[in-house]
Computed example of a mutant assay.
Amino acid sequence: MPITRRRIFSLLAGAATAVGVPSIWMTFMKTYDGPVSDHFDGLHFFDPDGSPPKSLAEVLRWQLAGRGQRAVWPDWVPSPYADTPPPRVEGAKVRLSFVGHASWLIQAAGLNILVDPVWSMRVSPFSFAGPKRHNDPGVAFEKLPRIDIVLVSHGHYDHLDVATLSRLTKNFGPRVITPLGNDVTMREADATIKAEAFDWHQRVELGNDLAVTLVPTRHWSARGLFDRNKALWASFVLETPAGKLYIVCDSGYGDGRHFRRVAETHGPLRLAILPIGAYEPRWFMRDQHMNPEDAVKALADCGAAQALAHHHGTFQLTDEAIDAPVIALGEALDAAKVPREKFAALKPGQVFEV
């Protein structure tokens, strides 16, 4: 395929979403400024038990040399489901609606919580290139109940979607809970977003006896060419009347210690939401994205009673086929002798209740 200007933009947009190599005009954006810690050196965040992101040369090697290995997704794969959530969910029940990719609506204790909300058609710094939706959100934006809280895990474009955050702010004015530095990104784009930034291990009261704790995860963050790891990334442990939910929006597996530590510190866990997609090629993606086999090991490590899969089937970020993650998840569960119903892969619009 010839390297045209549009092709270059497309490559950059795809890399921006999957690994954080975005547009030149995002290069000089403001970034986090805070005290040194055991995971912040004064300029960059780091995971003492993780791996650094791939180099730009490795990004280009994957994007240019490996494109022939990339599966072709159908243009549009509609989900047979569409959810119309109730205004509130009270009592000891938790209702989870899968919006798509890494986006969830969680309703519990009279509060409505969105996780990594993305209603945009593309997850990219460009409006004309980059990963595009292959199905509608499982909940139409107009059918959302009043949103009280938004959790945003990190700054990659398929998780921090400024356009959606601005719509939510205009309609509902929710609190936005996010790791350190991502609040800067949000407010630079829209000063009205009510972003609150927290460090790993900080516990945040949400009201109605709900609380969330930000916990380390094996990943990284970037939105500009020179802002790699200048904002923090995290997973969430959400305390609800039905038990604790462990929400992992993006993570590699490594040796599993991140998941075991959550079990030791926050267990027992009622439910884990674990990513299973965007994992090929493994030489490139292993350190930042789990494959289904890794996700099954992560479920065993964290000890959750039940798991739900996400990060698949909506945006093509990497090389595997659209249905490969769900097929491989079933095979990995069978190999590990784990009942398939213990780790369910929903389609957008499907609902799960705890």
Rank of each mutant, 00 (worst) to 15 (best):
M1R: 11
A16P: 07
V21T: 09
P22L: 09
W25G: 10
M26L: 15
M26V: 02
K30G: 12
V36T: 08
V36C: 05
D41K: 06
L60D: 02
Q63E: 15
D75A: 14
W76V: 09
D83G: 13
T84S: 15
V94L: 07
S103V: 07
A108D: 10
P117A: 13
M121D: 15
S124D: 12
S124K: 09
P125C: 01
H134I: 15
N135V: 05
D136G: 05
P137C: 03
A140N: 15
F141R: 12
L151R: 00
L151V: 03
V162P: 00
A163C: 08
S166E: 10
F172V: 11
I177M: 07
P179C: 11
N182Y: 03
D183A: 14
R187H: 13
E205M: 05
G207S: 02
R218C: 03
A222P: 01
G224V: 04
R228D: 06
N229Y: 00
K230C: 01
K230M: 13
V237C: 07
T240W: 00
V248H: 07
D250T: 09
R270A: 14
I273V: 13
Y279T: 06
H289E: 09
M290A: 04
L299G: 01
A300S: 09
Q306C: 05
A309F: 04
L317V: 08
T318C: 13
A321H: 07
I327L: 15
A328R: 13
L329A: 10
A332H: 08
D334K: 15
A335W: 03
K337E: 12
E341A: 14
E341S: 15
A344L: 15
F352L: 09
